[in-house]
Write a protein that binds this DNA or RNA. Structure first.
Lengths: 393, 393
DNA sequence: CTAAGTTTGTTTAATGAATTTACAAAGTCG
DNA sequence: CGACTTTGTAAATTCATTAAACAAACTTAG
């Protein structure tokens, strides 16, 4: 049954439009909001009144006059609540506490040994409790928890499959919600990263409605934003672009296929190639980055080669999704200076002029924090989408 | 400026919900509509009244009682208006006239020589005029014209690029609208095909919200439906999946890349391979289909090989878009019986269990008519989306 | 054949969110 | 200082939905 229209819906739509505008254009006056949104001054006045009542918006006094009465400036009250973001890695847990503006207030990192599903969940909960404990007092308290995982999940927050953790069908959301009594959102690590880059000032994808985030780790993960929203596919399994074939008779991949992109353009691919050139001891990412930084020609050539392989896959992304922005993240993003040139060269040679015309390719602006911040952002978005705030005030 | 909410919007939403339900569940009573939509009986009554007033809905008398007063059954009046659909090919124009239900009423085919842009547009207009001339009298007359083109277009209906026609920046929509004074929609041939398969009873994709239509012609075109809507990418250039690389150092392609899927899995690829095996005279699609039908092993092997190459690209589609349905269309769809086996074998071997679980792969249900019917459907959808019908009545 | 119960669809009054119009307050500027 | 602007609120109006009541039409049990 489709969502029907009624007065409640109207108010919800308008209130969320007004709140969004205040969030992104603070400080702003009621009169200006009326102009920006197309609503009448009276409507804006009334909605702003309720938002102030609910603690999400504050008046911060008069602004500059433009030839008449001074406007009363409004500010989004980012400290009306806090959210927890978790980046659940294969051997680490990175957690942050942010206010509703996404400003990081507290941080917590720990290793986990992946001994068992229960042990990991215990560690995650411990990490969250730690952060919650340090949260300042606020009107709404902890509004939600977002968790980025190295695997795929469904809408109910079940981890369907996370090969690198060895997880299958783990009801992660439900377990953490019942333990802590706070709304939880689960999403793929790359999806969260995409949201992070799109939503945060420090990210490179603000205002991008069509964005693909490519996370280079031991494999390649991708998060896809279409029309400003995460694209999840028909069963939550979209964007396994790391397993797009770029060499139909290439190396076999653990996914069952062969010649997958990630076999040529991931950390693993880099390390494999490095082993042929360097002493075993120097074959890890840190060391390679250091050597390249010191000007080691052999290592720089490895990164350039990786850049070219990345380029081949990026062209596939362009042809499939026609995004306005591709963001490259993960630890290897640090190798930007050596990869960008070859990558761009391959991309320009192999792609068609049209989709390329309006395309930007950038390396992550948030670095290792894109996933954890994106997770926070998902939690905050869920909070604002819940009717509690939007309508009932 | 985002769309704000007001009473007009509410009515538009509800009216279109009610009309959609009548369109798809005819015959249906007001009481049943109230149940189906979640609106109250009073609201449904009022909206249905206006729809009857506007000629789009008819009362067709009493239905079966279910233990009380007999319901008055409502029927969508498909003949309240007509739409023209055009499939503009490289050397032909296929046109149909359908009623608002998408039932074909008239048909018109012609060859065109592609002498010049103006000549082709002249032929298209001639074809449309011919069909309009044969349209029955109706309340709304010709509500719109949809045109599927072998190239890409923008939202204003400009043909940006159509290599096989040799067109660049042709304002097709504007030219036809100013000539005929009827709303025109332009879209890619494969996009139209996808809509056709999704919207029509005879298509295989009814109710599919995540569908990829693969049109095999001299190249490969694809139309992608996400959340029930055509996906166009950030600049109208999505879904050039024919140019996804499946062999990074493969044959060079006219697109600038090399190893593109369509070099291995299109009509051209088939014909090229056939030339190595058969006398030159027998190398055309019709002949190959005939020979395969006669049991020619060498030709059947060619089709099987094509099926395998198709499979490789389909796996890429699955990993990228995670659709619930892939529809294979174009003339080569006739070779289903020889291609399906090898195609499925490759697909199952190379794809991951998860996205494959809920996936169907089917050959076109509309055959050569998917594009032309999809084009009609786009025109009809535009008509219903226009406020004229939806609100002002 | 009648009385009771059901189902359908309309009517009427109430609700509530946005709009329109008017206006007061607080500025600027010559 | 007075004319003009701009900001924000208030009151009256509009209008689509809902809720409740009801009339009409029908079935079914006895």
């Amino acid at each position: 049954m489709k969502q029907t229209g009624d007065l409640n819906l109207v108010k919800k739509i308008n209130k969320s439009i007004v709140l969004d505008r205040i969030r992104h254009d603070s400080p702003v006056s009621r009169a200006r909001l009326a102009e920006l949104t197309g609503l009448t001054k009276a409507t804006v006045s009334s909605l702003v009144g309720e938002l102030i009542e609910s603690g999400l918006v504050d008046e911060i006094g008069a602004g500059e006059s433009s030839g008449g009465r001074k406007p009363v400036m409004l500010l989004f009250n980012g400290t009306a609540g806090y959210a927890v973001g978790i980046d659940l890695g294969v051997d680490y847990i990175l957690g942050v506490l942010t206010d509703l503006n996404g400003v990081i207030v507290e941080q917590h990192t720990m290793k986990h040994s992946n001994a068992s599903v229960d042990a990991v969940i215990g560690d995650v909960i411990h990490s969250i409790r730690e952060l919650i404990g340090r949260a300042p007092q606020s009107t709404y308290g902890i509004v939600g928890i977002g968790i980025g995982i190295p695997g795929i999940s469904d809408e109910q927050g079940n981890v369907l499959f996370a090969p690198n953790l060895g997880w299958e069908n783990v009801p992660l959301q439900q377990r953490i919600e019942s333990e802590l009594g706070i709304p939880v959102v689960i999403d793929n690590e790359a999806n969260a990263g995409a949201v992070g880059e799109q939503q945060f000032d420090a990210g490179v994808g603000q205002n991008a409605s069509y964005l693909v985030y490519v996370s280079i780790g031991s494999g390649i993960g991708t998060g896809i934003i279409i029309r400003g929203e995460l694209f999840r596919g028909s069963s939550g399994f979209s964007g396994e672009l790391g397993h797009v074939t770029i060499e139909q008779n290439g190396k076999p991949c653990r996914c069952g296929s062969s010649g997958c992109w990630e076999l040529y353009a991931s950390e693993s691919a880099l390390l494999e190639k490095a082993r042929a050139v360097l002493p075993e001891d120097d074959v890890d990412i840190e060391a390679l980055l250091r050597r390249a930084g010191d000007g080691d020609k052999r290592v720089i050539e490895l990164f350039e080669q990786l850049g070219r392989s990345l380029g081949v896959g990026l062209v596939n992304i362009i042809n499939a999704f026609n995004p306005e922005l591709i963001v490259i993240g993960g630890r290897l993003a640090e190798a930007e200076s050596w990869m960008l040139g070859p990558l761009t060269e391959v991309m320009e040679r192999r792609s068609m002029p049209f989709p390329r015309a309006k395309l930007r390719v950038q390396f992550s602006g948030l670095g290792m924090k894109s996933t954890v911040l994106g997770a926070c952002s998902l939690a905050i978005a869920k909070f604002f989408a819940s009717t509690k705030v939007s309508v009932e005030g």
